[in-house]
């Protein structure tokens, strides 16, 4: 009898430990929502759809999220375009082409890259990359969306390589053997059989990488120039949602419109990353089920 009680108690402990995850998520939503909600009454949600982010002003404060969202999207988009070829080629190379020695060496090395703190990458970007971008493209300033995107791509590549590589190595050997038996060359097998078979895994990897990019703060704050303009040009300065929160949050008087607007930025950011994560999870799961 006593041991039964004990078993139950132990189970209870584990259950409550596990539910903290739910609690934390609930608290995050509750807290962000609670702080953001009064903005809906005064000055009203329509304020968030404006074209201008000018939270500190003697004339009229504007809290239009558009420049911040387009800024984040532009940087994320550019970073993804840059990261995908490197990430996918790297993954295919490591799993299909590389020698054993290369593979043993590269995998931990790339995992090390994932371990370089983002502030170190931002620091490196500010000192080394910014002047390079300025000179190569003949710009007036190297503080551009492109500079941020290059660094973010570098941060997304390990995620993309690691997860894609897993997906590619998991493609059943029989596929490749069948392809070879039909007379396909090694290259044809890689691109026409192996990669398509692993495609959903690769897509999920890319999306997870994007999730990391869109949520990254310090790097973009240090190198993108942070001007809140709506632009599609990689050579313009942009202000991302993350940098806006990091730069302005400490400053605002608690309870002001500006404070609440920043929580809305947080909510939009949260929703965007959540969607990305959810979709990539679904894709990954579908792919795993197929195996």
């Amino acid at each position: 009898m006593k041991s039964k009680m004990k078993e139950k108690a132990i189970k209870l402990v584990f259950t409550s430990a596990a539910s903290t995850a739910i609690l934390i998520v609930a608290l995050i939503f509750l807290f962000l929502g609670n702080e953001a909600a009064p903005f809906a009454k005064v000055p009203g949600l329509s304020e968030l759809f404006g074209q201008k982010w000018m939270p500190v002003s003697f004339e009229k404060e504007s809290f239009g999220l558009l420049p911040l969202i387009t800024g984040s999207l532009l940087v994320t988009f550019l970073a993804t375009i840059i990261a995908v070829p490197f990430g996918v080629c790297g993954a295919v190379y490591i799993s299909e082409v590389a020698s054993r020695f290369e593979r043993e060496l590269f995998k931990p090395f790339i995992e090390l890259l994932a371990g370089i703190p983002s502030v170190v990458i931002g620091f490196f970007g500010l000192i080394v990359l910014t002047p390079i971008v300025k000179d190569v493209f003949g710009l007036y300033s190297g503080l551009t969306a492109l500079t941020g995107a290059l660094l973010l791509a570098l941060m997304a590549i390990p995620t993309i390589i690691t997860i894609s590589e897993d997906a590619i190595s998991n493609v059943p050997k029989s596929y490749k053997e069948a392809s070879a038996a039909l007379g396909a060359s090694e290259l044809q097998t890689v691109w026409k059989v192996t990669v398509p078979a692993a495609l959903s895994g690769i897509i999920a990897a890319v999306m997870l990488g994007m999730g990391r990019v869109i949520g990254e703060t310090m790097v973009v704050m240090m190198v993108t120039g942070n001007a809140a303009i709506v632009t599609g040009s990689p050579f313009e300065s942009v202000r991302t949602m993350t940098a806006t929160i990091a730069a302005e949050m400490g400053e605002v008087p608690f309870g002001s419109d500006h404070y609440r607007a920043l929580f809305w930025v947080g909510i939009v950011l949260l929703i965007m990353t959540f969607m990305l994560n959810l979709v990539s999870h679904r894709v990954l799961k579908k792919y795993q089920d197929k195996q």
Partner: peptide
């Protein structure tokens, strides 16, 4: 101006 780059 919104084009001003805001430095941290």
């Amino acid at each position: 101006t919104t084009r001003a780059r805001l430095m941290p």
